[in-house]
């Protein structure tokens, strides 16, 4: 690694100002687990890192919103999300997924904002937050705005985060009545990056699937919502036959990509299996109260 400057802004305004220059070598840096790997491999050589440490305390909140939703600050560590009683109650799928995300040390320092900003489709959190209907909260030179997690990713490592913008948090709508699950498949070792990750959220009303969201990560170039698979579920009975139809639709719809962890064709077949399994697990998980 080459040397670079590390700057420590003490306010959001200062951090945004430092990021507004349009310099590719300037990056916001928090837990740093993802950026450090890019820097160590020589994939990214920064000239200046904007360390957000001084802003972390006021942006680490995890709280229930008045409408029964959830608000998670960008600087909340993945460990704090995992341990949060509010998360365990109102979005248990997130807390469960944390247990198999990287390892304890990474979760101790990696933060929700970074997990959203990184844009690697292999990350576990974006598909889950998208399936829950989450919105990314952004703050930039032109003020605050939001973007649905499901449409935040435009390509591999590419997001809708604009120049000079920072993620301040993520907001989830009320999950009452929704059943959710996230299942990933790692093809080399249990703790490897996923080859396919599927997050689903569905609502069953009077014995029929009233609403569903299905997100796929890892197997595709970017986080992708599988709308035809969702359509195959709608108004069907939550049973194996309906889930199999949705799985076939998912396999048809998703544009999987080749990588060292498997060919595109192999990932398509994995996706067919994992959509079915994730839907079954969501049903078993029961509805959030």
């Amino acid at each position: 690694m080459r040397n670079f400057d590390i700057v420590h802004p003490s306010s959001w305004a200062e951090a945004l100002g430092l990021l507004s220059g349009g310099d590719e070598g300037t990056r916001a840096f928090s837990g740093g687990t993802a950026l450090m790997l890019m820097m160590k491999s020589g994939f990214y050589a920064p000239t200046r890192l904007i360390h957000l440490g001084a802003l972390e305390a006021r942006c680490s909140f995890i709280e229930a919103t008045a409408d029964g939703g959830l608000l998670i600050g960008a600087a909340a560590t993945l460990s704090s999300v995992e341990a949060s009683p509010v998360v365990q109650r109102s979005a248990p799928v997130i807390a469960q997924a944390m247990k198999k995300l990287a390892n304890v040390r990474v979760r101790n320092v990696a933060r929700v904002g970074g997990a959203l900003a990184h844009g690697d489709p292999h990350m576990d959190l974006p598909p889950i937050l998208a399936a829950l209907g989450g919105e990314v909260l952004l703050c930039g030179p032109d003020g605050e705005r939001t973007c649905p997690v499901e449409s935040f990713y435009t390509g591999y490592l590419e997001t809708r985060l604009s120049q000079g913008e920072l993620i301040t948090g993520v907001r989830l709508p009320p999950q009452a009545g929704w059943r959710s699950a996230y299942v990933k498949c790692t093809t080399r070792a249990a703790d490897d990056w996923p080859t396919v990750g599927v997050a689903v959220s569905l609502r069953v009303v009077s014995g029929a699937i009233a609403d569903a969201r299905i997100m796929v990560g890892a197997a595709t170039e970017r986080l992708t919502r599988l709308t035809s698979a969702e359509a195959a579920l709608r108004l069907g009975a939550p049973d194996a036959a309906t889930f199999a139809r949705a799985a076939d639709a998912a396999a048809q719809e998703a544009v999987t990509v080749d990588s060292a962890s498997g060919s595109a064709g192999y990932k398509t077949e994995l996706l067919r299996v994992y959509v079915r399994r994730t839907l079954a697990e969501a049903l078993l998980n029961g509805a959030v109260q």
């Binding site: 590390i6 740093g32 687990t33 450090m36 790997l37 890192l49 304890v104 040390r105 990474v106 101790n108 320092v109």
Partner: peptide, 9 residues
């Protein structure tokens, strides 16, 4: 808090 020293500046 346990961290990975190799990923800590």
């Amino acid at each position: 808090v346990a961290v990975s020293g190799c990923l800590t500046l």
